[in-house]
Design a protein around this nucleic acid. Structure first.
Lengths: 103, 103
DNA sequence: TTGACAGGCAAGCCGCTACTTGCCTTTACT
DNA sequence: AGTAAAGGCAAGTAGCGGCTTGCCTGTCAA
């Protein structure tokens, strides 16, 4: 096991959040959960003019799934993607966050 | 302005959190706030056997400061580093996180 | 059955970034 | 004054990661 893994928990989660396109995908799934790959591609292009190809988005979804942020459900030739913010709890509990907004 | 910046807020924050060494630095500052560069280097080496050079840590601190996660205070030839988890609030408010733990 | 649709796999390219190396500036101590 | 300590700057290197390209698999409809 690499050295940092004993100290640094779930690096895949942070790596997944490290990319802007993946974050926008999470936003998109927050807005409408359970989309297929092609739906996501289409809506990202419509809403934000993003030019990412289908393979790019597919790889991003794989990373998000690897981090546990996205769960998939197959149905025939469709594959629906569902948001799972569970792993984010570990993130908010790692460092002390003041819950109240500062003045 | 690049395309994604209109959609994706504070990319520097996520980029800062994207590196494992930087996250361990945040842990270290959580444990003992207001350390100098050399203190951080020494304690990371002691506690976790990390081999990062002084310059590496210095650059990491610069990134963290750029993301607003670390604030610095000069005093003579010393420079103390203080943790600021304020930017993390934007992160936890971006996606819906179930506050209760699942069974 | 044939074609279109939704998605997967694998290799290659390229830019970003973490890290090193070497040298410099400023501050403190004796 | 001279030396050590704390830190900064800048250029160069190497490896990872995002994206493309091309082709392949499985599923539904006409």
């Amino acid at each position: 096991m690499p050295l940092l893994n004993r100290v640094d928990a779930d690096p895949e989660l942070f790596r997944a959040l490290g990319d802007a396109t993946r974050r926008v995908i999470l936003d998109e799934l927050t807005d409408r959960d359970g989309q297929t790959l092609f739906e996501i591609c289409g809506r990202l292009a419509m809403k934000h003019g993003l030019t990412s190809s289908r393979q790019a988005i597919s790889q991003h979804l794989a990373v998000l799934e690897g981090a546990g942020l996205v769960r998939t459900r197959r149905e025939g030739r469709y594959k629906f993607h569902h948001l799972d913010t569970g792993p984010l709890r570990a993130l908010v509990e790692r460092w002390p966050i003041d819950r109240e907004a500062p003045p």
